[in-house]
Simulated assay, not measured.
Amino acid sequence: MNVTTTRGALLAAFACVLVGASFTANSVLGEYPYAGGQFLRYGLACLLLLPLAGKGSTARMRALAPRQWVRLILLAAIGMVGFNLAVIAAERTAEPAVPGVFVGCAPVVVAVLVPLLDGRGPRRAVLYGALLVAVGACAVQGWGRTDGAGLAFSVCALAGEVGFAVLAVPVLRPLGPRLLSATVCAVAALESAAVGVLVDGAGWLRRPDAAEAAALLWQAVVVTVVGFVCWYMGMQRIGAERATLFSGLIPVAAAGTAPLVGTGSYGLAQAAGSALVGLGVALGSGALNLTAASRRIGGRARRAAPAATFRGNDRPEWRGVRAPEMPE
């Protein structure tokens, strides 16, 4: 792993840990209208993200093709609003671990789907790592009681988690992480308002109490603004396949923080599952390959390495080939 991929991995991991640690805030909003809460969360996040989008944001948005706007609408509808609705609907007839297990399989689906859409085969190391992450996430969460409806909505939640990564791939480069996050938050806020009016009528939005306001503020500022930008910055550097591996850290972070607030326990199953998630992430991201290569080199005489020279923009060149520059 080079500096770019290491930084991307850390950003993706940090974003997923923030999401996992935010489950406590979600429990505070149990009595608040869902659509109204999502409207406030994404609306506030959009207002905070717009000043960070950078110069030329309007021009970049105008340059988007109609199919790209359709993709943004679907990204907000499926990966954000729809995902949260599916989880809530699943938990009406299923224990929370059930949709969690399905969502934990997202790295496997992304590891297969993204290469197919790109016209190539899955990367073996990423696929094996994704399988380990999925098994580890399932071990952390366990399994619970459910029925047909709970399973169906859990599958929808899995589709939402996959869509949040896959649908963003073609629009991440032209918009960049900050403008992409601001745009999908604006679209998600409008979609949440529409859902609220249709489902809850006049009661879709009310003034939150102190605890609910704090939870919504945490979701908007920390989970959405910081989390979304870090996630898409990480995905920009290491790709959707490897970035989605780190979604296995979401149940790990949730299980690790649950005992702090008295909503769960951390036992042997959670520890074993966390170890499997870590092993899968290391394998899929290439960290294990790097370690193995270092050991092989250390066990025999090293060949002379080509000297790296830096030209102008501080990017190294080996054998006359300049290292690629990643767009921000």
Rank of each mutant, 00 (worst) to 15 (best):
L64I: 02
L64P: 04
L64D: 03
L64N: 09
L64K: 01
A65F: 08
P66M: 05
P66D: 07
P66Y: 07
P66F: 03
P66A: 01
P66V: 08
R67E: 02
R67H: 11
R67I: 00
R67C: 04
R67S: 15
R67K: 14
R67G: 10
R67N: 10
Q68T: 04
Q68D: 15
Q68C: 04
Q68W: 06
Q68L: 00
Q68N: 12
Q68A: 15
Q68G: 07
Q68M: 11
W69K: 04
W69E: 08
W69V: 09
W69C: 03
V70Y: 02
V70P: 04
V70N: 04
V70S: 11
R71H: 00
R71T: 14
R71S: 09
R71A: 13
L72H: 04
L72V: 12
L72C: 15
L72I: 14
L72W: 02
I73L: 14
I73A: 14
L74K: 05
L74P: 00
L74F: 13
L75S: 08
L75D: 01
L75H: 08
L75C: 09
L75M: 13
L75K: 02
L75N: 05
A76N: 05
A76V: 07
A76Q: 06
A76K: 01
A76W: 04
A77W: 02
A77E: 02
A77P: 05
A77N: 05
A77Q: 04
A77K: 08
I78Q: 03
I78K: 01
G79F: 08
G79V: 01
G79T: 12
G79A: 12
M80G: 03
M80L: 13
M80Q: 14
M80W: 03
M80D: 12
V81T: 08
V81G: 05
V81C: 08
V81R: 03
G82A: 05
G82L: 05
G82R: 02
F83S: 03
F83E: 00
N84S: 11
N84A: 10
N84L: 14
N84D: 10
L85P: 00
L85D: 04
L85E: 15
L85I: 00
L85C: 13
L85Y: 13
L85V: 12
A86W: 01
A86E: 09
A86H: 07
A86Q: 11
A86R: 07
A86M: 01
V87C: 08
V87N: 02
V87R: 01
V87A: 06
V87G: 09
V87P: 00
I88T: 09
A89L: 11
A89E: 14
A89W: 13
A90K: 07
A90N: 06
A90S: 13
A90H: 00
A90Q: 06
A90T: 09
E91L: 08
E91G: 01
R92I: 09
R92D: 03
T93A: 12
T93W: 13
T93N: 15
T93D: 11
T93R: 13
A94D: 00
A94R: 04
A94L: 06
A94S: 15
E95A: 13
E95G: 14
E95C: 02
E95T: 10
E95S: 06
P96H: 14
P96W: 11
P96K: 08
P96V: 12
P96C: 06
P96T: 13
P96Q: 13
A97H: 11
A97I: 07
A97W: 03
A97P: 00
A97F: 02
A97D: 10
V98E: 12
V98C: 14
V98N: 10
V98W: 13
